[in-house]
Amino acid sequence: MEKVIYDLHTHSALSPCGDNDMTVNNMLNMAVLNGIQVMAITDHNSCKNCPAAMEVAKELPIDLIPGMELCTSEEVHVVCLFPELERAMAFDAYVHDHLPAVENRPEIFGEQRILNASDEIIGYEPYLLINATTISIEETVPLVRRFGGICYPAHIDKSSTSVFSNLGYFSADWGFSAVEIVSRDNIPQLAAQIPGFEDLLVLHSSDAHYLWDISQGENFLFCNNFRHTLGLY
């Protein structure tokens, strides 16, 4: 068993709410400086900065997992992680087809920058990424599995866009094997509300939208193989 320091929930400049300084190089280098060994970039409803990030990560002592923070039709956020870029991008295309055709208004929501490995802007995502997709929470686990990935509900103890804020309950039927929590202080209460809580992998990540929000080594797991522990093969 080894201690693996991770941060599996971060937003790049592609997310409208992500700071424009959240370029792939800035994020990954900051993560390395912070001692993070495994990181995921999880923009809202898009993986389009993962290709650049994967390229940058090749040169750095960090394992980058391509990911996405999916917004379900119930406006519940779900972290989706993939074993490789190709699968993530296939999922990205699927999700894009399930986004409402509402154009982003950068002056209201923020820019949605698509970057290359040199942090140059190579495009802008036209559709507003913070919108709800037409994918319901019941569909997420089998859907993401079909693309070879794993998923779990994000910040379940948050007062918005979480299973508890928007649905009010947690169903074992959804099939999640992990959850992301904001504060460990909420564990006793969550354990009482979630059937089979003791069998769930409890993760804690930064949900960083700014460089200074990226985890500083406080989140870790003791395991033999981090990816396998998550269910990524």
Partner: peptide, 29 residues
């Protein structure tokens, strides 16, 4: 549901909701 409000709320309406997060403000704008 903010994604519904975005496309359906009439301009100049008094919008009533329980969503008090930053995205609700952006949607109101």
């Amino acid at each position: 549901l903010l994604s519904f409000v975005m496309g359906r709320a009439p301009a100049d309406s008094a919008w009533i909701t329980v969503m008090g997060n930053v995205n609700a403000v952006a949607v109101a704008v």
